[in-house]
Design a protein around this nucleic acid. Structure first.
Length: 417
RNA sequence: GUGGGCGUAGCUCAGCUGGUAGAGCACAGGAUUGUGGCUCCUGUGGCCGUGGGUUCGAGUCCCAUCGCCCACCCCA
């Protein structure tokens, strides 16, 4: 048997309904703020991610699906969405449109990772990017959008964890200070931290090892070392969110896995799900476009892990989506097929979800089947009904049924809502 | 990348010290020829993950390999 590639999965009905509903909600909420969908290639030149995401990141150093095409060009399946958006922004001249530009993307990303529950090598992200606005208000809008979207799905205890990464110019000063503070305890750090010490010192902050964590708590937060402008920027973002009634929590050790973030960096969490499970995260990336050879255009955005989101979806939303029940149309007489099909067409046109019986089951077997597929009602077209142009409409919960003229079946079924 | 556990029907699993592959659920039909959910009967469904080895004989023992799960690591 041929099996799916490691780390991929098949999303079957009815689970797939949740995906469709979540994406529809995203288009609705983000669309309401004029974020319009951009559809990008899932493969890009490898160099885009090496330069965009950063060579020292885990993603680029060991998690990319990279392969040569038939002419020897190195391609990579996108491990995240922002780099591709930045590339398209430059290549398609989006900086010549009225600024800022608001974009939404939904789609699969790929990372060659060790498998674990809730983590896949192909996973989906929903993200937005706001390009061409450097103000704190831009950050506030993006975070508000994130909050609105998740609230629309029924999350009710969301907290934004916010950090200030400063500007790239602040980085060496901060890192030097951090190392100075940690120097006397360097031998107590874990082996990974020793590696990070030289390769990616910022990520020292992010270590999950308890002893390392303790040591980090005593270090000076990045936010206190950054330039006045950077500090004012993030403080204004925080104040703006608070003024909107969106809970914000300062997260001095929050560091994200992508090199391009500066100033604003954040995650959104739902505390009752556990503090380690961020639903989404993002930040500001004012140098990314220019680093990739484009104009100096600032940007901010986030990505939500759709797989994980669907895993933790509030039950209300879940039940609403999965609770939709079909109406079964059941021809139970010779020659009833056409009338049944016409009726099905009419019911669908009235917005009902119809499930036709097309296997020639007996009335009895048909009803049994209807119960199994969760039908809320069955429309029976037997010989008696057919003779007088009627149908029997049976409510599958109450068992009540009545004869209705064919033209009035849709009306009968939509009335009970 | 490191450590541990597990691979038998679509799903959950049983299968003893090696001797002709099983159950429940699910699916299909019927008992009830115009009425579902309960019950009962019948049926479909397997190269026992794959390859090699030991043996008269392997689902069972040995080796390898692939896959899945858990933890670490990392991360949306």
């Amino acid at each position: 048997m041929i099996r799916r590639a490691k780390g991929t999965r098949d999303i079957l009905p009815p689970e797939s309904r949740l995906w469709a509903a979540v994406e529809e909600q995203a288009r609705s909420v983000f669309g309401g703020l004029s974020y319009e969908e951009i559809r990008l290639p899932v493969m890009e030149p490898t160099e885009l991610f090496v330069r965009g995401v950063g060579e020292g990141t885990d993603i680029v150093s060991k998690e990319m699906f990279t392969f040569p095409d038939r002419k020897g060009r190195s391609l990579t399946l996108r491990p995240e969405g922002t780099a591709g958006v930045a590339r398209a922004f430059i290549e398609e001249g989006l900086f010549q449109r009225p600024q800022p530009v608001r974009l939404l993307y939904i789609g699969p990303m790929f990372r060659y990772e060790k498998m674990q529950r809730g983590r896949y090598r192909q996973f989906a992200q929903i993200g937005i990017e706001l390009l061409g606005a450097a103000t704190p208000q831009a950050d506030v809008e993006v975070l508000m959008a994130l909050h609105m979207f998740l609230e629309a799905l029924g999350f009710d205890d969301l907290v934004i964890r916010l950090n200030n990464l400063g500007d790239p110019e602040d980085r060496p000063r901060f890192i030097a200070g951090l190392k100075r503070e940690l120097a006397s305890h360097k031998d107590e750090l874990c082996s990974d931290c020793h590696r990070r010490w030289d390769e990616n010192p910022l990520r020292l902050l992010d270590c999950k090892v308890p002893r390392c964590r303790e040591l980090m708590l005593n270090t000076t937060p990045v936010a206190e070392v950054v330039s006045d402008e950077a500090r004012a920027h993030v403080e204004e973002v925080s104040a703006g969110l608070t003024a909107l009634g969106i809970p914000v929590q300062s997260a001095p050790r929050l560091v994200r896995g992508l090199d391009y973030y500066l100033r604003t960096a954040f995650e959104i969490v739902s505390p009752h799900l556990g503090e380690d499970t961020a639903i989404g995260g993002g930040g500001r990336y004012d140098r990314l476009i220019s680093d990739l050879g484009g104009p100096q255009v600032p940007g901010i955005g986030f990505a939500i892990g759709e797989d994980r989101l669907i895993d933790v979806l509030p039950s209300g939303f879940r039940d609403r989506v999965l609770g939709v029940r079909p109406v079964v149309v059941l021809p139970a007489a010779d020659g009833a097929e056409t009338a049944a099909m016409k009726l099905a067409r009419s019911l669908v046109e009235h917005g009902l979800e119809v499930r036709n019986e097309v296997t020639g089951r007996s009335l009895r077997a048909g009803l049994k089947w209807a119960a199994k597929v969760g039908a809320r009602a069955v429309v029976i077209l037997g010989p008696d009904e057919l003779a007088v142009g009627e149908a029997t409409v049976r409510d599958m919960d109450s068992g009540e049924q009545r004869r209705v003229e064919l033209e009035r079946v849709a009306e009968e079924l939509t009335a009970q809502d």
